Simulated assay, not measured.
Amino acid sequence: MSEQQPPKIEFPCENYPIKVLGEAGPDLHSYVIEIMERHAPGFDQTRITIKESSKGRYNSLTVWITATGVEQLTAIHEDLRINRSIKMVM
Rank of each mutant, 00 (worst) to 15 (best):
T49N: 03
V89N: 05
T49D: 03
K55G: 12
Q72M: 08
F11W: 14
L21R: 06
A40C: 13
V70I: 13
V89Q: 06
L28M: 07
A75G: 09
I18F: 00
T62H: 02
R38F: 02
A75N: 12
M1W: 12
E14F: 03
S2F: 09
P7S: 10
M88L: 13
P6E: 04
K55H: 14
R57G: 10
S53M: 08
K55R: 13
P17A: 02
E14H: 10
Y16Q: 03
S30E: 14
S53L: 07
S53E: 08
V20D: 07
A67N: 07
G22P: 05
G22S: 02
I18T: 08
L73M: 15
P7E: 11
K51Q: 15
N59R: 10
P6A: 03
E3A: 07
T66W: 00
I9H: 06
A67E: 05
S2M: 09
Q45C: 04
E34P: 01
E14C: 02
Y16E: 04
G69D: 05
M88Q: 12
R81K: 13
I50P: 03
K8F: 04
V20I: 15
L61H: 06
L73C: 12
Q72S: 09
I9A: 08
T66H: 02
P12S: 01
A40W: 01
R84Q: 09
A67S: 13
S85D: 14
I50A: 11
E78S: 12
E71L: 10
V89C: 03
L80A: 08
I76E: 03
W64M: 11
G56I: 05
V32G: 05
I18Y: 00
V89M: 05
A40D: 08
E14K: 12
K19M: 06
A67D: 04
P6Q: 04
R84S: 09
R81M: 14
L28T: 06
F43G: 08
K55W: 13
G56S: 08
H77F: 06
E14D: 11
E34Y: 01
A24V: 11
G56F: 01
P26N: 14
P41W: 02
E23K: 13
L73N: 14
L21F: 13
D79I: 07
I18V: 15
L21S: 06
E10Q: 05
G42C: 07
M36A: 09
E71T: 11
T66P: 02
P17F: 09
P12E: 02
Y58E: 14
P7T: 09
R84D: 06
I18R: 01
E10G: 11
E34W: 00
Y58L: 15
M36P: 07
H77T: 14
F43H: 10
G22D: 04
I65M: 03
F43N: 05
R38K: 13
T66M: 03
